[in-house]
Design a protein around this nucleic acid. Structure first.
Lengths: 230, 230
DNA sequence: TGATAAATTGACCAATTGGTCAGGATTAAT
DNA sequence: ATTAATCCTGACCAATTGGTCAATTTATCA
């Protein structure tokens, strides 16, 4: 019915300006939504951040709710695509370490995306609950099944695989969502540094791998007094 | 100057109704702020939640900003008071386990408080930054120093004590802040259960204690095939 | 070049918002 | 009972908000 844009599959070149502006608006919207949540964000603020008049935002995205949906959907896509597929044949230690590193890269490079998502969750996820109990639930079940197989094969110690995944998310995403808290406590007045992220990544990897019996404990200090007397 | 309430230290009985209503409003405000953040919350919504006319809220708290400040300050007080003091002489394993249990109790019983705090942090903590780089920073430094002493004494394995604290917070608070996500994935349609919290608590304690060399690893499965061959 | 579609935007509107206030109702103290 | 303080609240207001629209400009293409 709506003939606003003919189904011209061959040449999507026509919408060059549109693509550009949509991207610009989406980027601005992600930042504003991250800082203020859905209800707290105004289309005027998004327009200013994008350097466009407000009417322009509505021309491209209709309503604020539609714009928000698009932003959130993009983030969900990013989330899912960043999850490398793993198989039973993989090595547990390196697989888990790689995954933690990948998640920390996201926290470092796309903190706004993480914060938009966090905002949504804190408010009870009114707009993405289907995704949580659908795609995401299945993803977790698939992964935890593989972890359980590794445990069954004796490749790692028996742990609660589902909680392991949850807590990896908690530890990695906290560096994006609550970054201000950690930088304030660490005395980093200009925000978290590359080094902060590296140190945190190592700490998380050690925590997880030791929990799974995949990394030896460093010896305690003053073991000297017990092991070799004189 | 303002004679609205004489400094009558002896008998604060006079403000009985005031105390009651303030408490009622604060409770409602905590819930609404948790669900919508500061900018997203309306005084009308708080009034309805409290079962009072809107003008009443302003009668007791002046502006929305003042009310919010009061809510946040109360939560900060709760946070700090829940931190049991620990000393070098304490036992690392039981102290850490107790602390994790205490934080999980807070996540279970006061999730709204945690979510108000999380909202504030996600937005860059505009109203509580002094608290973060002041009281909270000092608290963390004090605690991590004790952990370092334990390490020096050989009572636990050498770990990054500051990140250990950060990650304990991340793992425990995620069960309040992002509870909807975990319940959706776990298939708990009516929200997290008491049992969910118990299981999570055990998982976190195991993770932390193993990381610190304070809890032995359970043996891997199929070790049978190595140890006793028939 | 002319014509059609797409993009732009200032001006505007109805609804919602935080906050005020005057006047009445309760409560507490004498 | 009188009085003063406190409590209560409907009605109101100025500012902000999401969204519309008509008029104009710019891009596209035969």
């Amino acid at each position: 019915m709506s003939t606003s844009n003919e189904e011209n599959n061959d040449q999507p070149i026509q919408g060059r300006i549109r693509k550009e502006n949509e991207l610009r608006i989406l980027k601005a919207a992600e930042k504003v939504f991250a800082d203020n949540g859905f209800r707290g964000s105004t289309t005027a603020a998004i327009a200013e951040e994008a350097g466009l008049p407000k009417a322009n935002i509505h021309y491209y995205f209709g309503t604020k709710a539609e714009l928000y949906r698009t932003v959130v959907d993009d983030i969900v896509k990013l989330w899912l695509s960043s999850f490398r597929e793993i198989t039973m044949e993989d090595d547990p230690a390196s697989t888990l370490a790689d995954y933690i590193r990948a998640k920390m890269e996201l926290s470092k490079n796309r903190p706004e995306a993480s914060r938009v998502f966090a905002n949504e969750l804190i408010r009870g996820a009114p707009r993405i609950k289907p995704y949580l109990s659908g795609e995401l639930k299945e993803w977790v079940e698939r992964k935890s099944k593989i972890l359980d197989t590794w445990i069954e094969q004796g490749k790692m110690a028996p742990v609660d695989s589902t909680r392991l995944i949850f807590h990896i998310w908690a530890m990695t995403q906290t560096w994006a969502d609550f970054g201000v808290q950690w930088s304030a406590i660490l005395g980093e007045d200009d925000g978290l540094t590359e080094e902060n992220f590296d140190t945190a990544t190592d700490a998380i990897i050690s925590t997880v791998l030791r929990n799974c019996g995949l990394m030896p404990l460093p010896p305690r200090k003053t073991d000297r007094s017990i092991m070799s007397s004189d």
